[in-house]
Amino acid sequence: MELRQLTYFEAVARCGGFTRAARQLHVAQSAVSAQIRALESELGVALFTRTTRRVTLTAAGARFLERARAALSELDTARGELAEMSEVLRGRVAIGATSVLGPFDLPTALAGFHGRYPGVALTLRSGLIAALLGRLDAGEVDLVLGPVHDDLPARFTAHPLATESVVLARPPGARPVGTLDGVREEAFVCLSAESGLRAILDVAAKAAGFTPRVQFETSSPASIRELVSAGLGVALIARSAAEREGPPIQVCRLDPSPAHPPIGLIQRRGHRLTAAARACRGHLIESAAG
């Protein structure tokens, strides 16, 4: 039994005749008839009832049609998977990521993806979430990993990967506090006014009844810890950032704890990713889940 025979048989059944099937297949009618006769001979049953006016399936033909279509569908699926795999293997993926990703281990996840698809050209760009979303808009990156704020524009869609929380960082040896109100008179270290972290600080301070005095503004989350460790102020930082190795700080858990947005995988809504980017997205989600 040949694949061509199954293809011709399905076409005759669908078109209701040899002539129409031959036209659709772009082959001679005699070729279609010959292949169907050969198939019937091999199976030992008639698949069609032929008259001068019409061609109809026999009971055996109807049963065989179900199996033939299932086989052809499986073959089409296999062809699609192989084509996508080939596209992945020669693809490129550009990822944007913030430095704060909660418990999600991006380096390990990317190493795992590289091990599975060593031929994919993988690039990583870091920065603050606003700048990375701009790169996503411009098509400079395929995916962005970072905090998913409530005001994420509708042109983006996000898949949650991990949760994150906020703690208060104070200089080493400072008096422990349990509320943000306890440091209302101190200088704050934070990111720029356009950053998500600054919005978290402003909301939490407003709830505590004061306006924070941001005396040290930086563009790097890592430098926040350095400035706090040097005794220049206090800061709200992500818990994962506080738990990393770095300059010593005193970590205070606050009550109430300021809300931190979840960490997610962000992409442009309605934009079809390349095969390589789809494979990378699936791998990152899988890594976060497991």
Rank of each mutant, 00 (worst) to 15 (best):
R90A: 15
G91M: 13
G91P: 12
G91T: 13
G91R: 09
R92S: 15
R92E: 15
R92D: 14
R92K: 15
V93Q: 15
I95L: 15
A97W: 14
A97E: 14
T98V: 11
T98S: 12
S99I: 10
S99N: 12
S99G: 11
V100Y: 06
L101N: 07
L101E: 05
L101D: 04
G102P: 11
G102C: 13
F104M: 10
F104W: 08
D105P: 14
D105K: 09
D105G: 11
D105A: 15
L106F: 08
T108I: 12
L110M: 12
L110N: 07
A111I: 11
G112I: 04
F113G: 00
F113N: 00
F113S: 00
F113Y: 04
G115A: 05
R116P: 01
Y117K: 05
Y117E: 10
G119C: 04
G119M: 05
G119R: 06
V120L: 14
V120C: 09
V120N: 09
A121I: 11
A121L: 14
A121P: 09
A121C: 12
A121M: 13
L122C: 03
L122K: 04
T123G: 11
T123L: 08
L124Q: 08
L124M: 11
R125S: 15
S126I: 13
G127F: 02
G127L: 02
G127R: 01
L128D: 10
L128W: 03
L128Y: 00
L128C: 05
I129C: 01
I129K: 00
A130G: 07
A130I: 09
A131Q: 13
L133C: 04
G134I: 01
G134D: 07
R135T: 03
R135P: 02
L136D: 06
L136I: 05
L136V: 07
D137M: 11
D137R: 15
D137V: 14
D137T: 14
A138Y: 01
A138E: 04
G139N: 01
E140H: 04
E140N: 02
E140R: 04
E140Y: 00
E140L: 07
V141D: 02
V141G: 00
D142G: 02
L143P: 06
V144K: 02
V144T: 05
V144D: 03
L145Q: 06
L145I: 15
G146F: 01
G146L: 08
